[in-house]
């Protein structure tokens, strides 16, 4: 018999019981439906222990890496600490060390921590103001860079949190940062695989992290980054990306402008449309999508139809919290 711990409470799991059955018996409010590993409703996480292999069958590789598992398929092999999806998070205090503009409406925010902050490039965190106001932002750097997190913050008209970050926060201020979340990140496997990155606006943030990570880990397959916005003034990191493309033969950077004023060196059209016109067969490719929810949803379908396997499509849609 093994012990299951959720926050302060412990539950016993009988030898013939699954984690889901044990938790339901203990009146834990956990969502579930099919009870046989198909619907993924009961997916939970064990931060400290690797779950049994059978409990991770059919999950995306990045979810497996983060110790997510299906409670209905899990017969524990040791005591487990379990986190439910909606469980309150642990926040760490960080200090703002850089706040400067990347373009006319995007702020570069770098937050430093006393100790190493563990994450995978491409994940996101929740930032929290002292009064409890909380928003999710993607991390734009990689864990190799000295205990800091980098964020790209677009000013949303009337957005309470982004306006606060843009107008009030300054170097030296502290801010609470949640544990990293999300499963949109690079795993160093199949290094010859093609990688397609498509982002709009600050959707570049997680993609830049994923790109840096893939290049640092020696990814040898072709990597295409399509970064789009309406006007050239809303793109950023253009020179840095061009320089990276010069340094790495397998990396291709295609900045896209959807309005009619397209300077030389930029592609005309929406980033997703330019990407689909450039790469016609995505069989065997890994795809990362980030930005406008409609673009992300549309592209999930289109890249799948162009041959990418559903397990190889990773996406983070920006959901704007109503103010």
């Amino acid at each position: 018999m093994y012990k299951l711990t959720i926050e302060e409470k412990t539950y016993s799991c009988q030898p013939d019981e699954t984690v889901l059955d044990a938790l339901l018996r203990g009146n834990v409010n956990i969502s579930y439906a099919c009870k046989k590993g198909t619907c993924h409703s009961c997916m939970v996480r064990s931060p400290d222990t690797v779950p049994p292999e059978a409990a991770q069958a059919g999950l995306k590789n990045t979810l497996k890496k983060r110790n997510h598992f299906l409670a209905c398929l899990c017969h524990p092999e040791q005591d487990m600490v379990i986190k439910l999806p909606d469980q309150s998070e642990f926040y760490t205090e960080g200090t703002v060390v850089v706040n400067e503009m990347l373009n006319r409406n995007t702020l570069l925010l770098i937050i430093a921590f006393k100790d190493a902050f563990e994450f995978n490039a491409g994940q996101f965190v929740n930032l929290q103001r002292a009064d409890g106001l909380t928003r999710s932002y993607s991390i734009a750097n990689t864990p190799q860079e000295s205990n800091t997190l980098e964020f790209h913050i677009r000013r949303l008209p009337g957005g309470r949190f982004s306006e606060w970050l843009h107008d009030e926060i300054k170097a030296g201020d502290t801010i609470a940062v949640s544990e990293p979340r999300g499963h949109c990140f690079y795993l160093p496997e199949k290094s010859e695989q093609g990688i397609l990155l498509v982002g709009t606006g600050t959707g570049l943030a997680p993609l830049a992290g994923i790109l840096t990570d893939a290049l640092a880990q020696g990814h040898s397959g072709p990597i295409y980054l399509f970064h789009g916005s309406r006007e050239v003034e809303d793109l950023y990191r253009i020179d840095e990306m061009r320089q990276l493309a010069e340094q790495h033969q397998n990396f291709h950077y295609i900045p896209c402008i959807s309005s009619n004023h397209v300077p030389a060196g930029f592609s005309h059209g929406r980033a997703n449309e330019v990407a689909l016109a450039t790469l016609t067969d995505l069989k065997g490719w890994r795809v990362f999508l980030c930005g406008h929810p409609e673009m992300v949803n549309q592209m999930k379908k289109m890249t799948f139809l162009k041959g990418a396997a559903s397990a190889d499509i990773y996406a983070d849609a920006f959901l704007v919290t109503p103010t």
Partner: peptide, 11 residues
Amino acid sequence: DMEKQAAKQKA
């Protein structure tokens, strides 16, 4: 939603 739909197709 592609992801939810893929799970339904599997079921």
